[in-house]
């Protein structure tokens, strides 16, 4: 018998620190699989965020640098410019990349930095106790919006990938989900393409992945997937939001 499924070489043996059923773990596995399949583990430097993914240097088998909250792309920019032959990626929560790090998200993209960013959108700040984030949905109850997000007071949810896709320096943007096996496989394809864009030296690539936070949503892991599918996927524009001409030929 042959092993047809198991831990990819892009991950270490260390068990994830996430809560039971949190889909951060699926997304990390997909990145680990892509690192292995593209044979870039040795050449890759990841940048970790602040948030529940803040320990990701322990989980990936490539090199890693830790950044301050929201600054992963600034750190990634520096690494890539100093070591242009390396593959550089950031792995960031929505609170990291779309709240405190929004300036870097926009300017890294506008400058067309040749790095890859993975954004994990669970619509809240997970690590700090489920506070409202720019990505929180209308009416969604969080620890800091106990009556639900009010658009008049709190503004509209920020669809960061859709915004980034409008910028010229950007070569590839996809918004995917990990709520079902089919979507997980699609998410992996998008993540792989985002790394291939960098391998080809084309420019900035972003993949946003809709993810669950069963703990702060107050739902079981199974119900969280359903909630994501029914509530988040209709709000955020899904699919490949930008595929530059040169990416189509990859």
């Amino acid at each position: 018998m042959q092993k047809v499924f198991g831990r990819p070489k892009g991950l270490t043996e260390v068990a994830f620190s996430f809560c039971p059923g949190c889909t951060h773990g699926i997304i990390m596995r997909l990145v680990g699989e892509v690192l292995e399949e593209l044979e870039i583990i040795e050449d890759t430097i990841g940048v970790s965020p602040v948030g529940c993914a803040g320990f990701c240097q322990d989980f990936f088998s490539c090199d890693f640098v830790g950044a301050a909250h929201g600054r992963a792309q600034a750190v990634g920019t520096g690494i890539k410019r100093a070591l242009p032959d390396r593959i550089v990626f950031t792995y960031q929560g929505d609170g990291d990349i779309a709240a405190i790090g929004t300036q870097h998200a926009i300017h890294t993209a506008a400058r067309g930095e040749k790095i890859t960013s993975i954004m994990v959108n669970n619509a809240i700040y997970g690590m700090t106790g489920g506070q409202m984030a720019p990505t929180t949905l209308e009416g969604m109850k969080t620890s800091t919006s106990p009556y639900g997000r009010d658009l008049v007071i709190n503004g509209y949810p920020l669809d960061l990938p859709k915004t980034i896709a409008t910028l010229d320096g950007v070569k590839y943007v996809a918004s995917v989900s990990v709520d079902s096996p089919k979507n997980i496989l699609q998410a992996k394809k998008a993540i792989k393409k985002a790394f291939q864009v960098q391998q080809a030296g084309l420019g900035f690539a972003l993949v946003s992945v809709l993810s669950t936070c069963p703990t702060n949503w107050g739902l079981s892991p199974v119900d969280s997937l359903k909630w994501l599918r029914e509530n988040m996927m209709p709000v955020y524009e899904m699919g490949e939001l930008k595929v530059a001409e040169e990416v189509k030929n990859l």
Binding site: K3, F5, G6, R7, G21, H24, P181, I184
Partner: peptide, 19 residues
């Protein structure tokens, strides 16, 4: 039947499938 669906959805890479 070795479809690997369980492994694909496992958030903790706690499943191996052999065929």
């Amino acid at each position: 039947n070795g479809c690997t669906l369980c492994g694909i959805v496992c958030p903790d890479v706690a499943i191996e499938v052999y065929k």
